[in-house]
């Protein structure tokens, strides 16, 4: 196994703002690598640097053995990209979109035709090849973009929030197509997400928060960082309950979104004790195996959050409305 992505002390500043503050990581050929974190954590910035869309302020990044700052064109030829927002041309048909991509990436004519047919089959769009993309659903567009992303046999396929805005069932399907493609093509998948459940599909995950990597490992390793089980309870007075728990059981609970989370080695026997001995009323209580949400909360001290709409989000919505209104 060789590293297909190597990142060392990567920094990106926008004026005073440090969006990426010294990231190190290495991704092996054929791996599914997840970049997990809330909006504004630096995920998209990092992926944009790796895709040569942004220049790093400091540090090194190599993709397919090529420095992204020194030879962006060579990197671009070896990567595929699926963006957060669809970047298909919706006045063109599915086939035309793939055709255009193949031409841009210099896939020779005969190979191109065969490859397009093959990929349309994989993402189950063969019967819609001649339809205009504007008639496609969100999930279909995403599938087509994924097919397009691997058309030119990239070594790495970057996916920025590939399932954002899709319903759970469609998200599941997208994952099926991705794993099928990965098996067929042996392509490395590097993806960002803020859906914790999706991160479970990854071989390894980097948890990123405020521009740095808080933890890196397999999903099982990361969950192993939480000793045992997680008890979540909702009470009226969170700070008071937290004090009581600390005094009585010597455990420091984490407060998030009006609930308290307690990590205990054996939740099944601790839970009855907790309910019996806590003096205040408990409105709900649950016991669970640790999830990546719990890992995130533990490592960063806050729940994965959705920030207020940025200027870009506003422009995105405006654009959607504008485009929507025209047809």
């Amino acid at each position: 196994m060789t590293a297909v992505i190597e990142v060392a002390s990567l920094v990106k500043k926008y004026g005073e703002l440090e969006a990426v503050r010294g990231i190190d990581l290495s991704v092996e050929q054929g791996e599914v690598f997840g970049f997990l974190g809330p909006n504004g954590a630096g995920k998209t910035t990092t992926i944009s640097i790796l895709c040569t869309l942004l220049r790093p302020t400091a540090g090194k990044a190599r993709v397919a053995g090529i420095d992204v700052a020194q030879d962006p064109a060579a990197v671009r030829r070896r990567i595929g990209l699926v963006f957060q927002d669809p970047s298909l041309d919706d006045q063109l048909t599915a086939r035309e979109n793939l055709e255009l991509h193949g031409r841009i990436y210099g896939v020779p004519g005969a190979v191109r035709k065969q490859r397009i047919d093959e990929l349309l089959g994989v993402v189950e769009l063969a019967d819609r090849a001649g339809s205009l993309v504007k008639t496609f659903s969100g999930g279909m567009k995403r599938r087509l973009e994924i097919a397009r992303g691997v058309l030119h046999h990239p070594q790495v396929l970057f996916l920025d929030e590939p399932t954002l805005g899709l319903d759970p069932q469609t998200r599941k399907h997208i994952w099926d197509y991705l794993s099928a493609l990965r098996k067929r093509e042996g392509v490395t998948l590097f993806m960002t997400t803020h859906y914790m459940d999706e991160a479970e599909f990854c071989d390894r995950i980097a948890i990123i928060d405020r521009g740095t990597i808080a933890a890196l490992g397999t999903p099982a390793e990361l969950k192993g960082r939480i000793g045992g089980d997680v008890i979540t309870l909702a009470v009226a007075d969170v700070p008071a309950a937290a004090r009581e728990i600390k005094e009585r059981f010597g455990i420091d609970p984490l407060a998030a979104n009006g609930t308290l989370r307690i990590e205990v080695p054996d939740g099944a026997s601790f839970l009855p004790r907790l309910v019996r001995e806590l003096p205040m009323p408990i409105s709900t209580v649950s016991l669970s195996r640790p999830s990546l949400d719990d890992v995130f909360l533990k490592l960063t001290g806050h729940a994965i959050r959705t920030e207020g709409a940025s200027e870009k989000d506003m422009m995105r919505n405006m654009g959607r409305m504008w485009r929507g209104g025209r047809r």
Binding site: S87, I104, R316
Partner: peptide, 12 residues
């Protein structure tokens, strides 16, 4: 920002 142009901008 949001359309097909990005496909062109990352193309070799």
């Amino acid at each position: 920002e949001f359309g097909f142009m990005r496909e062109l901008l990352v193309a070799p």
